[in-house]
Every structure is written in C-alpha cells, then in structure tokens.
C-alpha cells in the first residue's frame, strides 16, 4: 500500500483525496491490510468461492410493463439540477 496505489483507487472511486490526507489514509489502509494478511494464509485450494449465503436460483419476473408507480416529477424531485424532465450535468465530452 503506497501513495500511488491510494491515488489510483481514489481515482477509480471518483473521490477527491487531498494531498494532506494521503499519508494518514495510506497508513490506515496498510493497517487494515495487515489485519487481512492472516486470512490470506488460510489454505483454500479447491474451495468453491461463496458469493452468496443462499443456495437459490435467480427468480424470474413476467415480462409485463408496469402501469402505476411514482411519477416523473416525484422521481426528479431529488435531482440537484433538472430541466425539461432531464437531469443536468456539466457537459459530457465524448
């Protein structure tokens, strides 16, 4: 765990990481990963990774469009910025 790695994951996470916080965060993450080291030593050869506690299959929904549900005005009510029924963001450049 070093500065470069922390900066990279902050970028992937789209979270600002002020320069003065980098040493503290780096040290805290390093501590957490030291805690995790012992787990990494557990023998797990041939063990099927467990993604989920339930041994169930994905249920399927019938292909029927809804008729009710919240209106657009309600759905857009929380938007920091909206106009003409659209969510607004700074110009997306392709």
């Amino acid at each position: 765990m070093d500065k470069l790695v922390v900066e990279r994951i902050a970028y992937l996470s789209r979270m600002k990481l002020p320069a003065q916080e980098i040493p503290v965060v780096t040290e805290q993450l390093a501590q957490i990963f030291r805690l995790v080291e012992a787990m990494r030593a557990v023998p797990t050869e041939g063990v099927e990774p467990m993604a989920h506690p339930l041994d169930l299959q994905q249920p399927l929904r019938p292909d029927e469009p809804r008729t009710g549900g919240p209106q657009r005005a309600d759905l857009l009510a929380n938007a920091p910025e909206a106009q003409d029924g659209l969510f607004l963001v700074p110009r997306v450049i392709e």
Binding site: M39, R40, V42, T44, V47, E48, M50
Partner: peptide
C-alpha cells in the same frame, strides 16, 4: 488475492 480468497474463506 483478496476478493476471491475471502469468498473461499467465507465458504469455510
């Protein structure tokens, strides 16, 4: 090294 490993330990 981390995620998949932890899923295996979870199974154990």
């Amino acid at each position: 090294a981390y995620y998949r490993k932890a899923q295996q330990v979870r199974a154990l």
